[in-house]
Design a protein around this nucleic acid. Structure first.
Length: 333
DNA sequence: ACCCAGGACTGAT
DNA sequence: ATCAGTCATGGG
């Protein structure tokens, strides 16, 4: 499986396609990056539950994605052979960094185990790439992700942008700074459907704004030490810390275990056996999936969550032995 | 009405 | 070290 899996971008009808509102014209922004279609599958990459600021529109029959990386607005125009990325402010280097351009895909695939589930996942979404997001935005967004579905995380994320973020271009709101969310107050955050997550988001915004955790400094720390710092923040546990390390700090060895990944491990890799503790699962992931296990995790996650292969799904829940199942047989003997 | 969702936290064994 | 309860909200 070490080849050809990611060379062709699969089109799978089972994947949900985002709504495509029509758009009259595009901003005339400079071209900053060209990506081969064999390298990047925009739908898989931007809808796989790693980034939440991207939306698709159609312009002249073309699918165009709009989103941001840090302070930079972006448009990604899909093409048959290549996609083009445009931005009014971003440098080519910034765009390339975000889209992980230059990633050695051959080496990535060669590092993966030759197991049937990885093959299935790569056949399904081999063109998915893990993008490099800004650390604070990633941290804040994944605090909001706890026990929420991907579309709801997107809604919350965009709500935070529109409500508290600066509009840097028409219709493009930057993600609010730690100071902005700290100043907003927990109650104002709670009004964006955050529920119990508002406390953690606000507490973390206050802590980061006060410099109690220096997010920029984590860039230079070993992954384990950076994780130890992240989990000191309110609302941040092991899973969210691993998401931040993987998506916001470019650590491919971070392996987030959420309910889907746990289900994948239980159903596909430990079938019939007792599922080890999270700690031991991390060690299994290290030995089985290798140094790029975070990427492997994301292929498996996106494949199973969107395609829902029956082998990976839990059997339909057994009806609770409700004693009241039937009117019973009519009494009288 | 019930179950689930890219969990974290608390207080019991 | 594990384990249930709890925390809000929206969708199926």
């Amino acid at each position: 499986m070490t080849h050809h899996a990611a060379q062709s971008v699969p089109t799978n009808p089972l994947r949900s396609t985002p709504a495509l509102p029509a758009l009259d014209g595009l901003p005339d922004w400079p071209l900053v990056l060209t990506l081969p279609a064999t390298f990047l599958d925009p739908l898989a990459t931007l809808r796989c539950g790693q980034a939440f600021c991207w939306s698709a529109v159609t312009v002249g029959g073309k699918r165009v994605w709009r989103g941001m990386s840090g302070p930079h607005p972006f448009l990604l125009v899909e093409g048959e052979k290549e996609h083009t990325v445009h931005s009014p402010t971003a440098t080519p280097a910034a765009a390339a960094r975000y889209f992980n351009h230059g990633l050695d895909v051959e080496a990535l695939l060669a590092s993966f185990p030759d197991d049937p589930w990885m093959a299935r996942a790569l056949a399904y979404c081999g063109g998915m790439r893990i993008v490099r997001q800004e650390a604070w935005e990633t941290l804040a967004t994944f605090i909001c992700s706890a026990v929420k579905q991907v579309p709801q995380i997107e809604a919350i994320h965009m709500d935070l942008r529109r409500t508290f973020g600066a509009e840097v271009a028409p219709g493009f709101h930057a993600f609010p700074t730690p100071a902005a969310l700290a100043a907003a107050g927990e109650e104002a955050l709670r009004r964006c459907r955050l529920g119990f997550r508002a406390k953690g988001l606000h507490g973390t915004a206050v802590a980061v704004a006060a410099g109690k955790v220096d997010l920029a400094a984590l860039e230079h720390l070993p992954t384990d030490e950076a994780r130890a710092r992240l989990v000191t923040l309110p609302g941040v546990g092991p899973k969210i810390a691993d998401c931040v390390l993987l998506f916001g700090y470019g650590r491919p060895e971070a392996f987030p275990i959420d309910v889907w990944v746990e289900r994948i491990l239980r159903r596909l890799y430990f079938r019939g056996k007792k599922l080890p503790s999270k700690e031991r699962l991390q060690r299994f992931a290290e030995t089985h999936f290798g140094p790029w296990r975070g990427h492997a995790q994301q292929y498996l996650f996106h494949w199973v969550r969107t395609a829902r292969p029956p082998e990976a799904m839990d059997p339909p829940k057994k009806k609770a032995p409700k004693k009241k199942s039937k009117p019973k047989k009519s009494r009288l003997h």
